[in-house]
Amino acid sequence: MYNFSYEKVSSVDKAVEIIRSAEDGKFLAGGQTMLPTMKHRLADPSNLIDLGGIKELKEISSDENSVTIGAMVTHAAVAASIEINEAIPALSKLAGNIGDPAVRNRGTIGGSIANNDPAADYPAAVIALGATVITNKREFVGDDFFTGMFETALDDDEIIVSVKFPKTEVAAYMKFENPASRYAIAGVFLAKTADGVRIGVTGATACAHRGMRLEDALNQDFSPNSVDKIDLPVEKMNSDIHASAEYRAHLVKVMTKRAVQACT
């Protein structure tokens, strides 16, 4: 790891002030991707601005229609929160299956979403549930936030403050995971919302996305069989040592069927 300047801040404003004056600063959330990336010298930031001291980013709150999770809330805290489990059980379950227990004690929802790993779990939930990503500058709804592989709509000096999820009782997340990393080789988050079925797909393509073809079929006939007749675009699927594009296209359909079964 190359060396860097380190500062722990206690407010969002201070973090923004430092990053604006830094040559190539990065915000540090849970560090479960950032630090391994830096160890491999794939990232070389001049400054790390540790958001761990900002109390307001660690809060969970809810109202009649939604639950809002601070950006620095860990996966373990999301999985253990009774408030979140009552509002969106599928989201608790997703958080409890990210990585492993030690990773879940450090990794955060804001870090996961800002990193936008193509195989991360949370982006599928944000997309399927139509969640609102709230930053220090503005708000993004659902898939507007995720723009490409490891790319988001965030500016360099923009910090995710919280993510607001509409309460959704009927939803399920199914992933076919890499047995070492626990990242999704293919993952499907299905939510039954007021506007019909919404699906977020992760792990399969360069960036998590809405599964529009799957949604259309399931809005006509909400059964596992209706997934069979869909042709997914194999040319858009990732292909690597873990799975070919054809296999991923198949897995997306299998995970969707399992999610449908779980919601029936």
Binding site: Y6, K8, A102, V103, R106
Partner: peptide, 11 residues
């Protein structure tokens, strides 16, 4: 529990 290889000492 945490992985001490994935946390800075200063943290």
């Amino acid at each position: 529990s945490i992985k001490s290889c994935t946390m800075l000492a200063i943290q």
